[in-house]
Amino acid sequence: MLMQRHLWNFFWGICVLIALVLIVRVWNLRLLYIDKAVREQVRTTIEVVAGREGWLISDISLRAVQNTGVMIHHRQHMRGSDPRECYFIAFETLNRSPCIP
């Protein structure tokens, strides 16, 4: 019984940890879901920048969405260590500036 109780506590602890990590992530992306105009801007920005840089969409992950732009991680998936970069891309200019990953 004690073993099962410990395992259940461990299970709920894992769930809480996962929830906290994911809630922070979703919070940073909330504009994507609540503002249709921002959603469209993000979509266009990602497509344009990926095309311009020759990036694969699957190598891009959204980190945060703001009214002025979007923060992305670009990770080139390959065998061994993957080169990673973080960029903030402004909606207006579509220029990318480095950010701290």
Binding site: I18, L22, V26, Y33, L62
Partner: peptide, 16 residues
């Protein structure tokens, strides 16, 4: 329901 809710959260955090 908790794992389902967590999966939903994960999906919202990965819009691609």
């Amino acid at each position: 329901f908790t794992p389902i809710a967590l999966l939903l959260l994960y999906t919202l955090g990965n819009p691609l």
